[in-house]
Design a protein around this nucleic acid. Structure first.
Lengths: 200, 200
DNA sequence: GAATTTATTGATTGATCGCTACATAATTCA
DNA sequence: TGAATTATGTAGCGATCAATCAATAAATTC
């Protein structure tokens, strides 16, 4: 991680910056400002490089964002952590929603979910297209997990979880507190429990 | 409405276009593309005027959007329609959420709520600032209505409704169907009923 | 040392952004 | 009829956008 400059067998002039660090920096910037509002100039200034170096390393703004978004979805609220076969599905969902409330409000400068917030853009926005693909994969994964414990209502339960998380992400960006979102998650869980356990 | 060209007492050269029609056109465009993604060029082309005429009539893009957003919030899902004193608060909320599901999916090119979707932007985005002010006023109004029927849990119930509507608006933009959103609204209502009626 | 390879710097490119200056056209009021 | 007023068309402002070009620098390979 710190030996990015060494790269023994590399020919040519070595990089003067760490691409991984640049991805971390970019993640924070995209999370704060969004895909469209964040310009190359702001990225390169924050990383401490010139545009040409940025494009040599990452190819394009879209490719740069895609790498960041892929890493984000793999790290933040990974579904495998919550859905285990020895745990009632409703408990898994409750834990997921509660943890989402905390994650989305952990840093006021980067509130909400990077992926879900990147969906809020024009249809033809490149950032939205990338985020949409990632969000759909995640959604299918979630639905598969829920289907294992509640096959009859998996689709609607997945929609409820998805809508709730999107709403919590939006609310977090509008400044709603962690405690409030935890309560929202709890109320949503009540409805979901009723749905899954076959209540009215 | 059709006599905008007459305006008996008006001095100077008369307008060649209907500002009200231009507001309608702009509402559809903003709803489809969002504040930032919609440029003056696209607006003026759709309305059939030149930029100079646009600025003479509306002052700025922000002022134009503000007039559209104010009209939108007054017309779409007006809270007074749903909250009446002779109706249990949970029924009012259920009707509001159900109608939101239908409204948000009525037109696929303008899915979701114009105000809520305009909140998804950079903090310093002018469109977001305008939408945020309108959304906050609406939120306070909603909380006041809910407090009349359920004062003890008005704050959290308001948060749940707000989050659910924001999530439904986002889902509608991602292509989720009306039927699915109606089911989501129904599940959310179950949780809210439990909250309001003091259940577990 | 010479050739090759890769990354850097610095200066731009063409497109688009919101917005406006200027002259002209069309109307009302005196 | 002429002055005042308002809207229009043309043309372009400075700023910013993502992305790139040519020249140079720093490494490896031969």
């Amino acid at each position: 991680m710190t030996d990015h400059l060494l790269s023994k067998g590399a020919r040519g002039r070595p990089r003067r910056f760490d691409p991984n660090a640049a991805l971390i920096t970019g993640r924070a910037l995209f999370h704060t400002h969004g895909y469209e509002a964040l310009g190359i100039a702001a990225i390169t200034e924050a990383v401490g490089i010139r545009p040409a170096s940025f494009y040599a390393a990452f190819g394009s703004k879209a490719a740069y964002f895609e790498r960041i978004a892929e890493a984000y979805v793999a790290e933040v609220l990974p579904l495998e952590t919550f859905f285990r076969d020895d745990c009632p599905i409703i408990d898994s969902i409750a834990k997921l929603l509660g943890e989402a409330a905390r994650t989305y409000t952990a840093c006021s400068d980067q509130a909400g979910c990077l992926i879900l917030e990147s969906l809020r853009a024009d249809r033809n926005d490149e950032g939205r297209r990338i985020a949409l693909r990632i969000a759909q994969i995640r959604r299918e994964k979630l639905q598969a997990f829920i289907a294992r414990g509640a096959p009859a209502v998996a689709l609607i339960a997945t929609d409820v979880v998805t809508v709730t998380m999107a709403g919590m992400s939006a609310a977090a960006r509008d400044g709603v507190s962690c405690v409030c979102l935890e309560q929202v998650a709890a109320v949503a869980t009540v409805g979901l429990r009723s749905l899954i356990e076959g209540g009215a």
